[in-house]
Design a protein around this nucleic acid. Structure first.
Length: 915
RNA sequence: GGGUGCGUAGCUCAGUUGGUUAGAGUGCCGCUUUGACAUGGCGGAGGUCACAGGUUCGAGUCCUGUCGCACCCACCA
C-alpha cells in the first residue's frame, strides 16, 4: 500500500495474498496446550451434496467471527471442520446422477452402488470445505472429519452397542412414516406438513343386520382408498346417534369384508359423521385404536405405494386407486356427500412426496429417560441459548418426545451393526427373541444359541442424524478411546452456531447424546440464527430464480463485503432478508476504510514515522491534556465504542457490532475527525501527534472489525504495523484484542468539539437554504453570554471551521462583556448547548444575499418547532405529579431543556422582529 | 387446535430495565468533481410507532383485547 495507491480497494488480489499468508503461518491450527484455555466450535457439518449457498455462508461467517474474536482474546481456539454423509439427501442426489447414465441402484447392486457413492464423495465431497477456506474460515484444516470416516463410524457403532446393551434400542413392527419415493421410513420429525385442499367423502357402510332401523353407517375420509384396509368402524360411546350400533357388523363395500363397530372415547362426535373408519395399517391414530381393541392390522398399501391384499385393486397406485374407489362407490350409490376440505398432508422433508403411514419393522431408540436428562441440563442453564426463546421451544419438545425411529431402508449410511444367525426366524421374532440377534461391528463367529456360523447383517442403515448426534465427541475420537487426551481437553465445546430449523432434528439430540455418553453437555452455548431469504421474504430457491450465490457476491464485491453484510443483517434468531444492494453498501464501506488508511499513510513521511512510532509507544494519560479538542473527542468516542462492542460480544448481538462499527468509522472518524485533522496535518508542530492519534484509532478499528472482515483488516494491519511498537505480532490475529482505556478526558473540550460540529452543520444548512455559491465565503459571528470558557475553546479551534472552506472569517463576542446588536443582512441560528453553557448564537453575514422574507419564513418555522417542545416541557413542569413522582434526574433534565428552549425562543423572537 | 415471534420512514431493520424533540442503512429528490474515497460529500422530503382499551406523572417500550403476517408443534378421520 505504501508504494502504490490504487483508487479503490481491490479485494480479489488482496484476499489471495492474505489467505496464503494465513495458511503459511498455519494460524488455524490448534494443539493441546494446558497453559491456555480452549475455545472450541465444532462445525455443523454441511452435507456432501451441492455447493456453498448463502445459508452456509451465514452460518460459517458467524462461527468464524466468534472464533477469531476468541483467538484475539488469547484462547486456544479450535474450529473443527467436517462434512456429513447426509443419508437420504445424498443418496437421492447420486441416484439422480445414475439415472442420467441409465442406471439405478438396483441394477448396480448394493456393493457397486456404495462404491459409486464413495467415489462420488471423493470427487465432490470437499467442494464446500474448499469454498469455506476461501471465504476465510479459520477452521483447523488438519482435523477435517467426515461422519462416515473410520473415527466417526467407530463412535456410531460404540454408541449403538451401548444403547442396545442398556436397553434403549429395540426393534418393532410399528406404524411409521414411509416415503414411497425414497423407499424408507422417516422419523416423525422428518415429516413436513403442507396444507392441501381435498375432498372429504362421506361413505355409507351397509349394516349386516337388516332388521335395524338404519341400513347404513356413514364414515368420512379424505383417503377413500384406505377403506380397503378398514378393520373396524369406531364411534364415541357417548354418541346418542350410534350408541345402539356398538357391536353390530358392517359389510365393507367393494370387497364385502365384515368388520365390527366398536366404541372409543377418542372419537370426536362433532367431526364428520361422528363415525370413523379404522385403518390400523395406514393411520397412526387407527393403529393405536387397533392395539387397544385388538383389531386385525391389514396392510393394503405396500412400500411402493401400490395396493396389496385387496383383490381386484391389487397393484394399483394409491392415488389411482383412490379415483377408482370413488368411482366404484358412486356406482353403488354409497357416497352420501362430498365436502371441500383443507388439511395438512405429511410430505417427505427430502423429496416432498406424500408420506404413506404404514406398518413396518424398524429400529427405535427409547427417548424418554434420555430426554429427561437433557431437559434438566437445559433448565439448569448448562446450555445457554441465544436468543433465549429457543430454550423454551427445546424444553417443550423434549417434554413431549416420542421414540426415535433410527432405521432407514437406504444404502448410504452406517449399516446397522446387527447380525441375525441363519436360523433366525423372522416369523417367530416378535421383539422378544433376541437370542439370535447379535450386535457386532464385524460378523460374529458363532451363534451362542444354535452354534451356527452363518449370519446375515441387518440391511438397514442408521438415520443420518444418529451419527450427527454424536458429532461433538465422535470428531475427537470418542469411538476409539473415550478417555483420550483430545477429548478431555477440547470437550465440552464452547458454542454451537446453527439455524433454528434443525434445533430438534440435531441440536437437542446432540445434547441428549452428549449427556448420555459423556455425562456432560456437548456445548455451553447455542447461537441460533435464521434462514437467509430474498428481500421479499421468500426462501431462496433455484426454481424461484431468486438465489443470490455467495460466490458471485465474492466475485463482484469481495469476501469481506459478503461477510459484513451477513453479519450486519443478523438479528438474533430472525430470518435475514438479503438483496444485492446490501452487498454494495458493504463494499463501499470496505472501500471507505481502505481510502482513509491510504490518506493517513500518504501523509506520513519517512522521517515522521520514527517520531510517530515513538509518540504512540509513549502515549499515556499524561499526554491527554496536551491534545486538542478533536483528538480528545475522537479518543473518548473510541472508548465508548469499545465499551459498547464488548457488551454486544457478551450478549452475542453480532449484528449490532457491525452497525456500531459502521457508524463510528464513517460518521465519527471519517466525516468529522479526519476532516478536522487535515488542518493540523498542515502544521509541522501538530503533524506527529495528529497522525499518531489517527493511527491509534485506525489500529483499534481494524482489530474490532477483523473478526467480521478478516481479509482487508489483515491487509491494512500489515501496512501500518511498522508504526507500532515491536509487540505487535505477525498477524492481526495475534496482536491482542482491544480494551478501553481509563483515560480522563477534558469534558469541556469534548463538548466544544460537539459544538463545533453543530456550528458547521448549521452553516452548511443555511448556505444550502440560501443557495449560496461555493466561491462566496461569508464572515460569521458567534455570540455567547454564559460561559466564556467554551467561547475560548471554540475560538482556539475556529480555524477548523474556516478551513472547511465554508466561511471567510469568524469573530467571537461575549454578550456579558460587550455590547451586541444583531448585524443586518445576516442569517441567524441559535443552539442549545447545556445548562452550564446556555445557548449560542450564530450569525452569518451575507449582505445582499439574504432574502429577508425567506429568512423570516425560516426563523418562523424554527420558532414553531421550538415552541412545540417548549410547551411540552412546560406542561410537564406544571404537572405536580410529575414533579413529585418522576426521578430527580428526569425533572432536572426537563428543567434544563425548558430553560434552554425558553432562551432560544426569546432570542429567535427578538431577531425576528429586527428583520 | 395449541404455542412462539413479528407489525416503527417507499423498502430492510435498530430502538437495552418505561423518561433525549423516535433513529440508521437503502431508495427517492436537490446541490456538489475542493487530490483519501462519486464505491465520495452536503442537504431535503417521508412516521397519528397495526388498531382499541388499560396501568402510569410519563408508553414505540408494560398489561388486555382485536386485526394482519410468519414460523413451530399437534393423531380430528
Amino acid at each position: 500500500m505504501n508504494n502504490e495507491f490504487p483508487k479503490a480497494y481491490n479485494p480479489k488480489e488482496t484476499e489471495t495474498k492474505i489467505l496464503q499468508f494465513w495458511f503459511e503461518k498455519k494460524l488455524y491450527h490448534s494443539e493441546i496446550d494446558k497453559t491456555k484455555k480452549p475455545f472450541v466450535i465444532v462445525i455443523p457439518p454441511p452435507n456432501i451434496t451441492g455447493a456453498l449457498h448463502m445459508g452456509h455462508a451465514l452460518n460459517n461467517t458467524l462461527q468464524d467471527l466468534i472464533i477469531r474474536l476468541a483467538k484475539m482474546k488469547g484462547f486456544n481456539t479450535l474450529w473443527l471442520p467436517g462434512t456429513d454423509h447426509g443419508g437420504i439427501a445424498t443418496q437421492n442426489v447420486v441416484e439422480r446422477i445414475l439415472l442420467k447414465q441409465g442406471k439405478t441402484k438396483h441394477s448396480l447392486g448394493r456393493e457397486k452402488f456404495l462404491e459409486f457413492m464413495w467415489q462420488w464423495r471423493k470427487e465432490t465431497g470437499d467442494t464446500i470445505l474448499n469454498q469455506l477456506k476461501n471465504i476465510g474460515c479459520l477452521c483447523d484444516w488438519d482435523r477435517t472429519r467426515f461422519t462416515m470416516d473410520e473415527v466417526c463410524s467407530k463412535a456410531v457403532f460404540k454408541a449403538f452397542k451401548k444403547l442396545f446393551d442398556e436397553g434403549y434400542i429395540y426393534r418393532g413392527e410399528r406404524i411409521v412414516n414411509w416415503c414411497p419415493r425414497c423407499k424408507t421410513a422417516l422419523a416423525d420429525i422428518e415429516v413436513e406438513y403442507k396444507e392441501q385442499k381435498d375432498k372429504l367423502l362421506y361413505i355409507k357402510y351397509p349394516l349386516k343386520n337388516k332388521n335395524l332401523q338404519v341400513k347404513y353407517i356413514t364414515v368420512a375420509t379424505v383417503r377413500p382408498e384406505t377403506m380397503l384396509g378398514d378393520t373396524a368402524v369406531a364411534i364415541n360411546p357417548n354418541d346418542e346417534r350410534y350408541k345402539r350400533l356398538i357391536g353390530e357388523t358392517v359389510i365393507l363395500p367393494l370387497i364385502n369384508r365384515e368388520i365390527k363397530i366398536i366404541s372409543d372415547d377418542t372419537i370426536d362426535i362433532e367431526f364428520g359423521s361422528g363415525a370413523v373408519k379404522v385403518t390400523p395399517a395406514h393411520d397412526p391414530l387407527d393403529f393405536e385404536i387397533a392395539q387397544k381393541h385388538n383389531l386385525e392390522i391389514l396392510k393394503v398399501i405396500d412400500e411402493d405405494a401400490k395396493m396389496i391384499n385387496v383383490g381386484i385393486y391389487c397393484g394399483i397406485d394409491r392415488f389411482d386407486c383412490r379415483k377408482k374407489v370413488v368411482e366404484d362407490l358412486k356406482q353403488l350409490g354409497l357416497i352420501e356427500k362430498v365436502e371441500d376440505y383443507t388439511h395438512n398432508v405429511g410430505v417427505c422433508y427430502r423429496c416432498g412426496t406424500v408420506i404413506e403411514p404404514l406398518t413396518s419393522k424398524q429400529w427405535f431408540l427409547k427417548m424418554k429417560d434420555i430426554a429427561k436428562k437433557a431437559y434438566e441440563a437445559i433448565s439448569e442453564g448448562k446450555v445457554v441459548y441465544y436468543p433465549e426463546v429457543y430454550k423454551e421451544h427445546t424444553l417443550r419438545w423434549l417434554n413431549n418426545i416420542k421414540d426415535w425411529c433410527i432405521s432407514r431402508q437406504i444404502w448410504w449410511g452406517h449399516r446397522i451393526p446387527v447380525w441375525y444367525c441363519k436360523n433366525y426366524n423372522s416369523e417367530l421374532q416378535k421383539d422378544t427373541e433376541f437370542c439370535s440377534v447379535i450386535v457386532s461391528e464385524k460378523k460374529p463367529e458363532e451363534c451362542p444359541n444354535c452354534k451356527t456360523t452363518e449370519f446375515y447383517q441387518d440391511t438397514d442403515v442408521l438415520d443420518t442424524w444418529f451419527s450427527s448426534a454424536l458429532w461433538p465427541f465422535s470428531v475427537f475420537g470418542w469411538g476409539l478411546d473415550e478417555n483420550n487426551a483430545e477429548l478431555k481437553y477440547y470437550y465440552p465445546t464452547q458454542i454451537l452456531v446453527t439455524g433454528y430449523e434443525i434445533l430438534y432434528l440435531w441440536v437437542a439430540r446432540m445434547i441428549m447424546m452428549g449427556l448420555y455418553f459423556l455425562k456432560e453437555v456437548p456445548f455451553r452455548e447455542v447461537f441460533v440464527h435464521g434462514i437467509v431469504r430474498d428481500i421479499h421474504g421468500k426462501k431462496m430457491s433455484k426454481s424461484l430464480g431468486n438465489v443470490i450465490d455467495p460466490l458471485d457476491i465474492v466475485e463482484k464485491y469481495g469476501t469481506d463485503a459478503l461477510r459484513f453484510s451477513l453479519v450486519s443483517s443478523t438479528t438474533a434468531g430472525r430470518d435475514i432478508y438479503l438483496s444485492e444492494e446490501n452487498f454494495v453498501s458493504s463494499r463501499n464501506f470496505m472501500n471507505k476504510v481502505y481510502n482513509m488508511t491510504k490518506f493517513i499513510l500518504m501523509n506520513i513521511s519517512k522521517q515522521d514515522s520514527n517520531f510517530i512510532k515513538n509518540w504512540i509507544k509513549n502515549f499515556d494519560e499524561s499526554k491527554i491534556s496536551y491534545l486538542g479538542i478533536a483528538e480528545q473527542w475522537i479518543l473518548s468516542e473510541l472508548n465508548s465504542l469499545i465499551i459498547k462492542i464488548k457488551e454486544y460480544h457478551k450478549k452475542y448481538l453480532l449484528g449490532s457490532i457491525a452497525h456500531e462499527l459502521y457508524g463510528f468509522v464513517w460518521f465519527k472518524f471519517c466525516d468529522w475527525y479526519l476532516e478536522t485533522a487535515k488542518i493540523n496535518l498542515q502544521k509541522e508542530e501538530k503533524k506527529v501527534s495528529t497522525l499518531s492519534v489517527l493511527l491509534i484509532v485506525l489500529n483499534k478499528i481494524l482489530k474490532l472489525l477483523h473478526p467480521i472482515t478478516p481479509f482487508f483488516t489483515e491487509y491494512i494491519y500489515q501496512n501500518i504495523k511498522f508504526l507500532f511498537s515491536e509487540e505487535e505480532k505477525d498477524s492481526i490475529l495475534d496482536s491482542g484484542f482491544v480494551e478501553e482505556s481509563n483515560f480522563k478526558f477534558d469534558n469541556l473540550k469534548v463538548i466544544s468539539y460537539e459544538v463545533i460540529k453543530n456550528i458547521v452543520s448549521e452553516i452548511r444548512t443555511i448556505r444550502n437554504e440560501f443557495k449560496i455559491q461555493l466561491n462566496i465565503k461569508p464572515n460569521i459571528i458567534i455570540v455567547i453570554e454564559k460561559n466564556q470558557k467554551i467561547l475560548d475553546t471554540i475560538k482556539e479551534y475556529s480555524n477548523y471551521i474556516q478551513r472547511l472552506g465554508l466561511i471567510n472569517n469568524m469573530s467571537f463576542i461575549n454578550k456579558k462583556n460587550e455590547e451586541f446588536k444583531k448585524p443586518q443582512h445576516s442569517a441567524t441560528a441559535i443552539f442549545e448547548i447545556t445548562k452550564e453553557f446556555g445557548t449560542l448564537e450564530l450569525y452569518i453575514l451575507l449582505e445582499g444575499i439574504i432574502d429577508f422574507e425567506k429568512e423570516k419564513k425560516r426563523l418562523k418555522k424554527e420558532l414553531e418547532e421550538t415552541e412545540k417542545f417548549f410547551i411540552l416541557f412546560e406542561q410537564k413542569l406544571n404537572n405536580s405529579e410529575f414533579l413529585a413522582k418522576a426521578p430527580k434526574e428526569e425533572v432536572e433534565r426537563i428543567k434544563e431543556k425548558y430553560l434552554l428552549t425558553k432562551e432560544k425562543i426569546e432570542k429567535i423572537k427578538s431577531y425576528y422582529k429586527e428583520l
